[in-house]
């Protein structure tokens, strides 16, 4: 027992202050929220789309980057002759709608809080069931990290439940292989209503690097009604936490924080 106490003292108190203090610092090479700078693309230039592995860049009228498809490989920004693409250090990527994932400026459109009824139900206690449907274990790992003492998700009343019957929401990772489609849908059905759906990672939003493979459903977006999209490959734990807290209305709106 004494050994445990001594070890505990050596390991120190580790839970971060965020969101009541500063957010943990991202590494200098972190690629966060993309920004499309104002200006015009050189006539006929298609180079960013040629290097993008997941078709995340489009130019219907104006240049846009779909964060839902982006795997943040960073290939596009350095090749742009007009320097219109940039990855910022901003970890706030999560949005409330698929359309808000389309970035065509420097404006941030983070997720809004839930409606009043669901906020009243889930705001102080949210139990999530996690289903990995073809996830590569990176999104899963960085979701798991939120349960470690450094992040301590439990202090916000958010927990992961072992059974869908005990859960208020479903957190999906992976591109949803044909072989996991039934497992995912059955899990969703087993959740009592009202319920939330959160999709984490490029795969769960769009299929990610597996998009277009006939073995997968290109994510959960067409199968389930999604309340929160958390892009990234994988999203940083801070990005996932940011999304969850915004959904529960526990973070101030950007610009007011």
């Amino acid at each position: 027992m004494l050994d445990i106490i001594l070890a505990r003292m050596q390991q120190k108190h580790r839970t971060m202050k965020f969101p009541y203090g500063p957010a943990p610092q991202m590494p200098p090479r972190y690629l966060g929220r993309p920004a499309v700078m104002p200006g015009d693309c050189p006539s006929g230039c298609n180079i960013c789309r040629e290097v993008c592995p997941t078709g995340a860049l489009g130019r219907q009228g104006r240049l846009g980057l779909d964060m839902g498809r982006c795997i943040f490989c960073g290939e596009c920004a350095p090749v742009c002759p007009a320097q219109r693409l940039r990855f910022t250090q901003d970890h706030r990527l999560a949005t409330g709608s698929r359309a808000d994932l389309l970035v065509d400026s420097e404006v941030i459109r983070p997720a809004s809080p839930l409606d009043a009824q669901r906020k009243r139900l889930f705001g102080r206690s949210l139990n999530l069931r996690q289903v990995s449907a073809g996830g590569c274990n990176a999104c899963e790992a960085d979701t798991n990290v939120l349960g470690t003492i450094g992040w301590d998700l439990g202090r916000f009343g958010i927990h992961f439940a072992a059974s869908p019957r005990h859960a208020d929401g479903l957190l999906v990772t992976g591109p949803v292989p044909a072989n996991m489609r039934l497992g995912l849908l059955k899990t969703y059905e087993a959740l009592p209503t009202p319920k939330l759906v959160i999709v984490v990672g490029a795969c769960a939003i769009s299929g990610g690097p597996f998009a277009g493979h006939e073995e997968v459903a290109d994510g959960a977006g067409d199968l389930l009604p999604v309340d929160l999209y958390v892009p990234g490959c994988p999203p940083h734990p801070l990005t996932i936490l940011d999304g969850l807290l915004r959904l529960l209305g526990r973070l101030p709106e950007p610009g007011k924080d």
């Binding site: 040629e50 290097v51 993008c52 592995p53 997941t54 290939e75 990995s132 073809g134 996830g135 992976g174 591109p175 292989p177 044909a178 072989n179 996991m180 497992g183 690097p209 597996f210 493979h213 006939e214 073995e215 997968v216």
Partner: peptide, 17 residues
Amino acid sequence: YQHRGVERHLAAGPDRR
């Protein structure tokens, strides 16, 4: 359950993916 057709698509490469 996690089958995503990785080898089948890798065999069509090399490409940007």
